[in-house]
Amino acid sequence: MSALRPWAGVALLLLPVLIWVLSLAANYDVIADVDVSRASLAPSVDHWLGCDHLGRDVLWRLITASESFVGPSLFACVVALVIGVPAGALSGWLGGLPASLTRFGLTTVASLPRFVLVLLVCAAFGNSVQLIALAAGVAYAPTLAEAIYARIQSFRHRGFVLAGQAHGLRSGRILWLHLLWVNHRRLILRHCVQLFAYFLLLETTLSYIGGLDGAGSFGVAQPDPSWGNMIAFEWREPQANIWATLAPGLATALVLLGATWTGRSLIEEQA
């Protein structure tokens, strides 16, 4: 079982990405698909997960909701990589005052709770998923940078770095190829997986809160589907089709589980 866990993790993690591609390809109009005559319909052959209390197909909303987090969370990963990798690598490699200054900046950002930071950005600049993704990426970058910094710092005076220099390898090649690519890619990938999961949780949480207050002031607002607002939209309905709340909740849990398993399998034993 434990041998299968990494593969199960990757499969669970790739599932939303596949669904996202499917959703983009199908381009199904979930907003127009309202039919009150099938309100709270139980699962059937026509509607595999039934319908919600407005008579909207739950499966299609579940699929389309992937658009509200997969793309943005990949964007968040890119933002975190673009900031975190050079900052961590260069400060770990160069040391001295530039490193101290960079790390001071990073720790300042890291000292704000991420969730609060994201809420602040939403409050100040408006509430779009792309903006949330940008904020999440920026908020996560210090964690990535610190992890890379700590390892580069400890690798910098190792024998093989010195030996590489003695063989005439340029510093740039040692840093980017031997240190970052060969020795840090798993670490970086693990942080990306973690950020992916973090963003899913963040978007679901915000959309859930936004869905509860009805005004849609946080996250993705109805009628656009998100796993968070799907739960918020249905769970207080007396005659609800239970799959309309259960399915997005289960989907969220499974993807997070996949991310945890994948992340764990990427932790390498310390050399």
């Binding site: 024998g159 093989f160 030996a163 003695a166 063989h167 340029r170 031997h178 060969v182 020795n183 050399a271």
Partner: peptide, 23 residues
């Protein structure tokens, strides 16, 4: 730069530590 490698190579004391551990 022209010294390290082309002219002089160095085989360090602990050769295992001198090899990239993940390559």
């Amino acid at each position: 730069v022209p010294v390290r490698g082309p002219l002089i190579a160095w085989l360090p004391q602990n050769p295992r530590a001198a090899l990239d551990p993940l390559q």
